[in-house]
Design a protein around this nucleic acid. Sequence first.
DNA 1: CTGAAAGCGCTTACAG
DNA 2: CTGAAAGCGCTTACAG
Lengths: 329, 329
Amino acid sequence: MASTIYDIAKKAGVSIATVSRVFNESNNVSEATRKRVLEVAEAVGYHPQAFAQGLASKRNNTVMAVVPIISNYFFMEVLGGIQDKLTEMKYELTIFNVTSGEHLFEEVERVLKRRWADGYLFISVHLSEEQWKRLQRLNVPITLVDEHFEGFDSVSVDNIQGAYRATKCLISQGYKKIAMLSALETSKPIRDRLTGYKKALKEYMIPFCNEYIVSGDSVYRDGFTERGGYEAMIKMLSMEEPPEACFCASDIQALGALKAMEDVAKYIPIIGYDDIELAEYIGLSTIRQPMKDMGYFATQNLLERLKNNSKAISQTIYSPELILRSSTK
Amino acid sequence: MASTIYDIAKKAGVSIATVSRVFNESNNVSEATRKRVLEVAEAVGYHPQAFAQGLASKRNNTVMAVVPIISNYFFMEVLGGIQDKLTEMKYELTIFNVTSGEHLFEEVERVLKRRWADGYLFISVHLSEEQWKRLQRLNVPITLVDEHFEGFDSVSVDNIQGAYRATKCLISQGYKKIAMLSALETSKPIRDRLTGYKKALKEYMIPFCNEYIVSGDSVYRDGFTERGGYEAMIKMLSMEEPPEACFCASDIQALGALKAMEDVAKYIPIIGYDDIELAEYIGLSTIRQPMKDMGYFATQNLLERLKNNSKAISQTIYSPELILRSSTK
DNA sequence: CTGAAAGCGCTTACAG
DNA sequence: CTGAAAGCGCTTACAG
């Protein structure tokens, strides 16, 4: 059986309070005592248990990342930034994977109530205004990434702006029939990007044409998949009047679109969204989201709030950057 | 202040034991009582706290993944498999990022002693025989991924075999001067892949030539980076007698190598290792590791051990698969 | 089916 | 600098 604080206290001839102080680096311990305790602890392989510490102290030096999907590029990059900051500050990371179905809200609420972590990072979790308000009542430190709600700190990228720039780039190359390769419109990023796309068309007085908003049929991951992009591009290219150029709602869909174009040997310029690592290799023009920075900054923000919960709520919005490569040439 | 089990018990007119039973889905509760408790809990937004449950029950339905690096392809894929299984079994995932420096062992030992999780998955954590033995004494359920030690369950891929196949593939195409684009030899996968490379050469009676083992100069991530690959390939191509073909220790290095070849406009066939998603897009021949399967299987294995710690220790070794694409044509 | 009570392994005022 | 003691919020035999 593993030893507890009592065993150490007894063997070192001190009280458990003293042992606790040694491990919590309180400076109210004499050097001799500290040394003795540490020696005993080392000998039997003792270290305070996380759960007991957590319960007694009501803190646990853990941040929980709540995410709808774990193994994708966007999340991986964001996570990289989160981890950098967390390691720097000696916090631990717990990942909670919500299943994004109809019980999303209940799942999220439940995990907050369990008080697993000191603070929470919500990555690409999209809830209704009403639902965010309910979470607010739980009074738990939360920072939003890739989402926006006035009651919580948030870090996001201006999706409208990004789509606008992408579309405008295509327009400025002289194209008029510009399609948008879309996904499920229940997805918030999609709605925003659609808005930006329309805004650009309007500005250049190009009539909006609903047929040019095309999605694939697969709904897995809301359509943000290579397959979704493939399906949509096949549809586009077989239209009576195919578009001359295409703005894709994500790089991963653009990848599928690229494949589709190869398969039917018809090519139109396309531009993606995200700037995943792959984009550079295949020469995909895209809109860059500073994913890693967002993760890092959001974490920093959350940790500051853990220190001082009364600080003002801040909304950070990054500007997306247009990256031109060969796919728009 | 959030309510506790006492508040619920009082409001529902039952004991805390009963409230506890309701939330633990014990069936020894009358339907009427259960309903009443649930109603009260719902009204005040109560849910048992993870840490209190964990301390009292000595279980916490959490698995911890111990990883040296978080945002890379290999890990992302493995993690995807882990998460699938964990979600299926309603376990939570905690990620612990060891910093891979000189205190690696101490860090790892400490986290095990803290008893954060019910079980641990070590991904690409390479320790000495001696160190693994010390961890064994902690008597904690551990499953190794991408590593092998007889005292723990493990899931890995035969690196020697993989490198052997890659090299043999190049030899069979008629090349004799075959280089290996390597990385830090302190890395265990590198040592194994080197062994496989040599084995193939020997089998075909091609003399081993130490100059043909080339690494980049950057040591970040043990050299498993695009940059490391770039640097190494530049070196190779500027040799007096450049190799005719090259086996790269990882796809990510192969990527850098590809860039280097473009930059100096000299091309030789190369083959990578891993089969990251990117590989398909750029036509990189490679050795596939079933990363997602490994994660899934390792997790399943660990969860079984949590149920029954006396089951026999198993070593699972996957065979790597040769994937031929355009980079070797 | 239900409750009283001990216990999980710590932290933290409080007192000295 | 140190200790005694209460408390963190649960679970789980045990008894009925």
